[in-house]
Nucleic acid binder design. Structure first.
Length: 590
RNA sequence: GGGGCCGUAGCUCAAUUGGUUAGAGUACCGGACUGUCGAUCCGGAGGUUGCGGGUUCAAGUCCCGUCGGCCUCGCCA
């Protein structure tokens, strides 16, 4: 080893001993006669003192050091003295009195300094990702990510699961997300698809008698990106045989408790609460509500219909509802203009035609629309919300399909802006009893809410034909701080039920055979009842770190247009490569 | 595919209503200083205002197009 200690290691107890450190120059201060260098590695920073009176021969070399140079220093660990301790550094009580200095490598002047708090724009960070990854925040993310992986493997190993790898080169199934395709050289005109998830393989592993499977699986989806979505991501993929829904929820409860204990040293209260899908939609307007704060939706359709406010009356008369939320203490924070522009825009994103509001002042409702409500109606509204002075009430009058997501988005926005929760908290809950299918009015058909192999609540099986929208699935989501952090289901193992679901989804027997015939065939040879779940590993790391962007927990992420600015991927390829693959490229016009 | 925000020195930002030679901090280069830790002080260098076009006596600023980054709706079984 080139070093005897790391830069995060030395303490007062080491004073008087010799040490050799290696690392990057995080900062330097030249006092002519004494040069200070803060040396950084993965473990921390240590101040090096190059003193003219102790080591005159290396003084000139020390003065030449610049940011991000890589050096090796040998010297004695020394007390800094009472009044010179730096409380900001773990190693702040000591410094290394350098006797020998070796410059292992000079750095070009870096385009930005990993050691400062001032962040450059993300484009530059991604282009120089190797510098960005030197920053403390990203180093922390990499460490937490490693811990999540390690703790996950430990947990499932101790629960008798097998970690099994499934193919990256698989068969394209046109269901679901767009596939990333890989051309086959030996089968001209044919393509593999990168897995959107190992869904079919893990079900086949259950048929194979593996019984308990997990995998840290890379998945690929060629869809548009978001702050919490990358084209390639990692799932903690799990499947179990001979289980019912609650067995799986219990198993994952245990995993989460293990992770929270291992990463934060905190105890997670089990079991995690399990809520009905319908209830979450009614109370929060979302199937993935952030329950770190309250602010439940309140229905005032009755009062609205009796009022003189045309917009409200019309909405109720045409089958919609008038629902609102109460933003505590927000009346002064949002001016009329901010409500009518910023907040209304959020609601408008989801199709809301407008956003009505009241401010509660002196026990009364103030608003441009207050005149349309009688004193008694205003009192009813105050009571319905339990509103107090300083509160802001916001209303959307529309069909639920519009007002639910609009109010849910407003709720999230207000919760964040009004700081209604502790950003460190991890609020976990299960949402169960999802509908099996939802009506796709553009395509005029039923779409699977989860996927076509998702099992049906036994008592709802007769409804598949009579009232498909009411059929509840044996599926479940794990929601954390408003993010979908895991999703799974019990699978269908009865061919008759499977056929009726395919019928409902408009998938013919021929189509089913063509797309996933190999799974259906496997299910005919003694498939055990089974089910599983997949956790979004990247999102979990993001949540554990308290970050709001998935790119910050991925070593080499892609931009919103799915480019890798570091490597320049994707890129054109040689004609020779294309010829080998029997591929001709035709670029879009313009 | 739609909506929004952004792009000025290596970096972070400023530049009045369209008007003088586009400024500051930091990094970089040189100098001073034996205890700093965001070191300090003195000096220097550093600009195709993303790119292309247009309007104007005059454009960083206004208009059109385009490229790139971020947020978001659709999309993501």
């Amino acid at each position: 080893m080139l070093r005897t200690r790391t830069c995060g290691e030395l303490r007062a107890a080491h004073v008087g001993r010799a040490a050799t450190l290696c690392g990057w120059v995080d900062s330097y201060r030249d006092h002519h006669g004494v040069v200070f260098v803060d040396l950084r590695d993965r473990w921390g920073k240590t101040q090096i003192a190059f003193r003219l009176d102790l080591a005159a021969d290396i003084q000139e070399l020390a003065r030449s050091l610049r940011l991000e140079d890589v050096i090796r220093v040998t010297g004695d660990v020394a007390h800094r003295g009472e009044d010179r301790v730096n409380p900001k550094l773990e190693t702040g009580a000591v410094e290394l009195h350098a006797a020998q200095l070796e410059v292992l490598n000079r750095s070009r002047t870096p385009p930005f300094q990993p050691g400062t708090s001032e962040l450059p724009n993300e484009e530059l960070r991604l282009t120089y990702r190797f510098l960005d990854l030197r920053r403390r925040e990203l180093q922390r993310a990499l460490r937490v990510r490693h811990q999540v992986c390690k703790l996950t493997r430990d947990y499932f190993d101790s629960h008798d699961f097998l970690e099994i790898e499934t193919p990256m080169l698989g068969r394209s199934t046109p269901e679901g997300a767009r596939d990333y395709l890989v051309p086959s050289r030996v089968h001209p005109g044919s393509f593999y698809a990168l897995p959107q998830s190992p869904q079919i393989y893990k079900q086949i592993l259950m048929v194979s008698g593996c019984d308990r499977y997990f995998q840290l699986a890379r998945c690929f989806r060629d869809e548009d990106l978001r702050a919490d979505r990358q084209p390639e991501f990692t799932q903690i993929d799990v499947e179990m045989a001979f289980v019912d829904r609650d067995d799986i929820l219990d198993e994952i409860d245990g995993l989460l408790a293990h992770l929270v204990q291992g990463i934060r040293g905190e105890t997670l209260q089990l079991p995690l609460p399990r809520y009905q899908h319908r209830e979450m939609l009614e109370r929060y307007g979302s199937d993935k509500p952030d329950l770190r704060f309250g602010m439940e939706l309140v229905d005032i359709s009755g009062i609205a219909a009796a009022s003189d406010f045309g917009v409200f009356k019309t909405a109720v008369a045409s089958g919609g509802r008038v629902r609102g939320i109460r933003a505590p203490g927000a009346a002064d924070r949002y001016s009329r203009r901010m409500i009518e522009e910023d907040l209304t825009r959020i609601a408008a994103d989801f199709g809301a035609k407008g956003l009505a509001f009241f401010k509660v002042v002196g026990g009364k409702l103030e608003s441009t629309i207050a005149k349309f409500f009688s004193d008694e109606q205003r009192q009813e509204i105050l009571r319905a919300f339990g509103a107090a002075d300083g509160d802001l009430l916001l209303f959307v009058a529309a069909a639920d399909a519009v007002s639910s997501p609009a109010l849910a988005a407003l709720r999230n926005h207000l919760g964040r802006e009004l700081k209604l929760y502790d950003p460190r908290e991890l609020n976990c809950l299960w949402v169960v009893d999802f509908p099996l299918v939802t009506w796709n009015k553009d395509e005029n058909r039923w779409d699977a809410e989860h996927h076509p192999f998702c099992s049906v609540m036994p008592e709802d099986v007769p409804l598949i034909q009579s009232d498909p929208g009411k059929v509840r699935a044996l599926s479940y989501d794990l929601v954390v701080n408003g993010y979908e952090a895991a999703s799974g289901s019990i699978r269908i193992h009865d061919p008759k039920v499977q056929q009726s679901v395919f019928d409902l989804l408009g998938i013919s027997e021929e189509q089913a055979e063509a797309r996933f015939g190999f799974l259906l065939e496997a299910l005919r040879y003694g498939a055990p009842p089974h089910g599983g779940i997949a956790l979004g590993l990247d999102r979990w790391v993001m949540l554990f770190c308290g970050y709001d962007n998935i790119r910050d927990v991925i070593a080499f992420p892609k931009t919103q247009k799915a480019s890798d600015l570091l490597s320049g991927a994707p890129s054109p390829v040689d004609d020779r490569q294309l010829r080998e693959l029997s591929i001709r490229v035709e670029l879009p016009q313009g």
